[in-house]
Design a binder for these strands. Structure first.
Lengths: 222, 222
DNA sequence: AATTGTATGTTGTTAAAACAACAAAAAATA
DNA sequence: TATTTTTTGTTGTTTTAACAACATACAATT
């Protein structure tokens, strides 16, 4: 197990190698590999383990009976998922967790975390505080997506998403973690209609793009 | 201050009256009253205090430049809001918090909470754990709304929302906390189009409603 | 009770996005 | 390199929701 990788994750930040060793044991750590598009957790599952992405990345998706997919969040290496469901006993997942690429996942059982901690596990409080920060950030992610999908037009959604990406990258040029279909699923629109709108916007000089790299043209930006 | 009310809130559950007294002092508690539609927190604000609804209720809204409103969440008496932003230093609100009715709000400064707790404030860990549970539940609320707005049709969104309401009320008949305009804003659709769709569904015998009370007609439910 | 205001329902028109079907380009594989 | 698969872009058609404008019902206020 790569301790320096783990120590740099948000979940385990502020812990020593020795503490991490205890944590992994205490939380019954196991790892598993998944191929792209494999489903890691199914909607309806009741889970008691957090997943941490060791390599690759995963998407949080909602898939309805008609095959309509919504991507709610994208989880990269070092980040965790399913903490919400793992922390609320008997709460069934309402989303699927899907491997966006081939990936390796670390599972950590959270059953012992929420209980009043035993004296041997002094790191529990640290982890709980880290989890609180992570949960708050997940909230921001979900709110952000709500914001990006609040406009009723495709163009409005694109502008909302792309401006935010530019802002968080502190650069008018940036690369997004989605292909066209995934971006459409994230923004809740049809892919071909979105492609069409992107082309129009490029023709109008609002932005330029190739593949997943976009550049927003501001008035003072040529 | 009504201690038995506070002791029954999720945030302060598991604390004694004496502890609550310390908490209120330690977190510099203040209260303020707001009239319906008054804005409690503005998008763009940087806040360091959680709000707890003592009476009335508030909505979490996103309002764009064109006046389009989205309701992301509805907070009732005893529940808290803005904990996400309050817990992440310098993170500006991307939503407005608006009084849905006349209400009284208790503000609790969270600056001291996240720091490693002093030995005098033993309740900090308890509050942090409670906050974690609350944050996880907020995540569920946001995910749930994403789910309800993932369908591209108005009917699909209505069915998603109303079925979930029936399920959480454990009854095919239930009352929702929104009027028509608010429900439309929550589902991200036009009010009149939604009213129209509701009427159609009633004509088709799928459901009946009057005011905010709905009844879903299942095959075995007449 | 009369009046004003607010909430909800109804209808027709318009605009826009979904959808389907295909073309072109890029990436992956043999 | 050739071939297959995947991704992206394009176009036309159809469906649907937004929008506007109004009618009705309900609630609040004087």
């Amino acid at each position: 197990m790569n301790y320096s990788f783990l120590a740099n994750t948000l979940l385990l930040s502020g812990t020593t190698d020795n503490e991490i060793k205890s944590i992994l044991q205490c939380l019954q750590a196991t790892t598993k590999e998944y191929k792209k598009d494999e489903i890691i957790y199914y909607a309806g599952d009741v889970v008691d383990s957090i997943g941490m992405v060791l390599s690759g990345s995963v998407n949080i998706e909602s898939n309805d009976i008609l095959g309509n997919k919504s991507i709610l969040d994208h989880i990269e290496s070092g980040q965790i998922f399913a903490e919400t469901y793992s922390l609320i006993p008997n709460e069934a997942l309402m989303v699927d967790v899907v491997a966006a690429q081939n990936c390796e996942i670390l599972f950590l059982n959270t059953g012992k975390l929420v209980q009043v901690c035993s004296n041997t596990c002094t790191f529990h409080n640290k982890i709980v505080r880290n989890l609180l920060t992570i949960s708050a950030r997940k909230n921001l992610n979900l709110s952000r997506r709500s914001l990006h999908t609040s406009s009723k037009s495709i163009r409005g959604r694109l502008i909302s998403y792309l401006s935010q990406q530019a802002q968080s990258n502190e650069n008018y040029q940036f690369t997004i973690p989605f292909n066209r279909q995934q971006l459409a699923d994230y923004l809740g629109v049809d892919r071909s209609a979105m492609s069409n709108e992107l082309s129009k916007m490029q023709k109008e000089g609002i932005l330029t793009f190739s593949k997943n790299t976009f550049k927003i043209n501001t008035p003072a930006n040529d």
